[in-house]
Amino acid sequence: MSDAKNGQPSDAAKSSLSEGLSPPQQAPGIMERADLLTGIVLLVLGVAVAWMSWEMPRLEVRRIHPATVPGLVPGLLGLTLAFCGAILALRSVRASADAAGWRVFGGIFVSPEAGRVGATLALALIYALVLVGTLPFWAATALFVFAFIVTFEYAFSASRSPLWRTVLTATVQAVIVGVTVTLVFQFGFLVRLP
């Protein structure tokens, strides 16, 4: 008990922050900054949900019991989320004060890993949201598989094989996957594909 009274509170707070918040593979301070931003987003989201729940009709016309209004549980959840978001943000404010740390934080969005994620996500989104539904399913699938393999085996790979070989094998795999998947699901499992 006496330790807690005599010890400096800032040190205690610092040690509790560094205890295990940041995963070992990342630079210190990155997770705190991410937590600060998510904390604020969650706070806003929680308040918005609580507000929408409060505005929800209470169905007085139907004479329902006032304790069973539809907005009760979402309202409580919204408030709890806002509370947790506030804790998350407040806890990270102190650790996120210096501007240099924010530059490091911004750096993770332009790293090679971010590029790989961005490319995967772009391909996945174009396939699911644009190609499927506009092209026949087998063609959309073949195009996606081809683009994915070429992107990662050629553009993002350190040990490149010749472009013609990548393109050739990718084309073969793309056509096989597109046709097989379509046939198997349409006729094997009787799924009507988009």
């Binding site: 996945a124 699911a128 598989v145 990662f152």
Partner: peptide
């Protein structure tokens, strides 16, 4: 993984679409 993951994703799209047959579930 460059060869496997696109196939897995195609299955994800079919898997989410097939049960109720609507593109909304893919979104």
């Amino acid at each position: 993984r460059e060869r496997l993951m696109p196939v897995v994703y195609v299955l994800c799209v079919i898997g989410s679409f097939a049960i109720t047959q609507r593109l909304f579930d893919v979104y």
